[in-house]
């Protein structure tokens, strides 16, 4: 699939997908979107890169690092990072749920506040976005681990 057409399309599409993913993630707590959808879209962008180039492209082409070919895919540096991201996401989800108990609210309870920023004006800050961030990390980490390992076989 590493044709010129595919690579050119990927170059154009990937940034758009990523921006859309972030906007869906940020608006998730009161509009359609959220950590899951944002995460899945992010995974789509990465998968496009993987399909157009190859699994090592992110390491070699983007980050300019060497890749150790001797280790199995599960211990590949990128995949290790994905797996850490998955665990981190789970930690964030559980911790954000438990954090609500400390001030005496119910498990998983959420709150929000408004802050006034210079250029943006009134901005809503919702605690739900922390939970969403955890979901996002779980989805991205989990799906990309699966895609990398299965794609490699």
């Amino acid at each position: 699939m590493t044709t010129t057409i595919m690579r050119t399309t990927a170059r154009v599409v990937v940034p758009i997908v990523l921006v859309l993913a972030i906007s869906l993630f940020v608006q998730g707590h009161n509009l359609p979107g959220g950590g899951f959808i944002g995460g899945v879209l992010t995974v789509t962008a990465f998968t496009l890169v993987y399909v157009a180039y190859d699994l090592d492209y992110v390491e070699v082409g983007v980050l300019g690092r060497d890749v150790d070919d001797d280790v199995g895919m599960l211990d590949h540096r990128t995949v290790t990072t994905y797996r850490r991201m998955f665990t981190f996401g789970l930690l964030v989800v559980v911790a954000s749920g438990l954090a609500a108990i400390v001030p005496g609210a119910q498990f998983l309870a959420q709150t929000y506040t408004y802050v006034h920023l210079p250029l943006f004006g009134e901005v809503e800050l919702a605690s739900a976005i922390i939970f969403d961030l955890g979901v996002y990390c779980v989805v991205v980490g989990g799906l990309l681990t699966i895609f990398s390992v299965v794609g490699n076989e």
Binding site: T87, L90, L91, V94, G97, F107
Partner: peptide, 19 residues
């Protein structure tokens, strides 16, 4: 909170053992 406790213990346990 006791009604919640077993559930939270199991969830925290799974995340901790993963971490």
């Amino acid at each position: 909170l006791l009604a919640l406790a077993p559930l939270v213990v199991a969830l925290v346990a799974s995340v901790l053992t993963l971490a």
